[in-house]
Design a protein around this nucleic acid. Structure first.
Lengths: 127, 127
DNA sequence: TCTAGTGTATTAGTTAAATAATACACTAGA
DNA sequence: TCTAGTGTATTATTTAACTAATACACTAGA
């Protein structure tokens, strides 16, 4: 399990862990039903408390990405890959709509808006 | 000075104040060189500590929107209008950053993101 | 100079989020 | 049943951001 913690980033450890596991599932580095490291193993590896790992796992289960089984372990949800494209777009449309409304209210010209978007796109990475 | 504080929003008071003053300048409700309420007056009006007001003013001066003059008062910066454009972009960048983070988290491919943006652009009108 | 109005540096207190410690609960295989 | 491995509920501690208290510093006008 390749997880790296930056103690100087200001981002809480449990969130850093969540993000990296989330991406690992998204990128297919972790397969459905695959077992994840035990809270103690990962905690030992990352030099943090097992409860911190448990917290990350708990949130990810709540998102539907993991399954927690007491006494057994943590597994990638069997439906983790079933998040529909349409659903993603729907959520994103709402987010983009808010941003565009803000831009409009500020009177930012379309050309400028496009330039800014391009700038963000350059450093954008997903999948 | 019309500033409203929502004590249940979770947003720090000094940030709420900053945002409202920033927008007041941006929208032209406050003119260059105009004097703002003293830290004590505004503190009394909003039922907070004067240092909280001072903190808001300090950050806004740092952004170039205000000038602080010890013993005299707080004034809208004479170059505030020149900073307007930069400020607008700054606000918009924050909004766009949130949207892009959302997209990234959802694993939306860059190409798809661009398509969606184009779609929104077509109906975009800046006042 | 004096006073009443400005802002502010320093310090202390408060609060909520994050992390850790401990003891407990569940599971599977010997 | 026993044991060694899982996860976790509860509680305490730590940390950083925020807010407040206090005392001080500056300005202008009487």
């Amino acid at each position: 399990m390749l997880i790296e913690i930056d103690n100087h980033s200001g981002v809480p450890v449990y969130k850093q862990i969540m993000e990296q596991i989330r991406l690992a599932i998204l990128y297919g580095h972790l397969e459905e039903e695959e077992q994840l490291p035990s809270v103690r193993d990962l905690a030992s590896e990352l030099q943090v408390n097992p409860m911190t790992i448990s917290k990350s796992y708990a949130y990810l289960e709540n998102e539907g990405l993991l399954m927690r089984k007491r006494g057994k372990g943590i597994y990638v949800s069997s439906s983790s890959q079933q998040i529909k494209e349409e659903e993603k777009i729907k959520i994103l449309e709402e987010s983009m709509s808010v941003m565009m409304a803000q831009a409009s209210q500020l009177g930012v010209p379309k050309a400028e808006l496009k330039l800014l978007f391009e700038k963000f796109c350059k450093s954008y990475k997903a999948e």
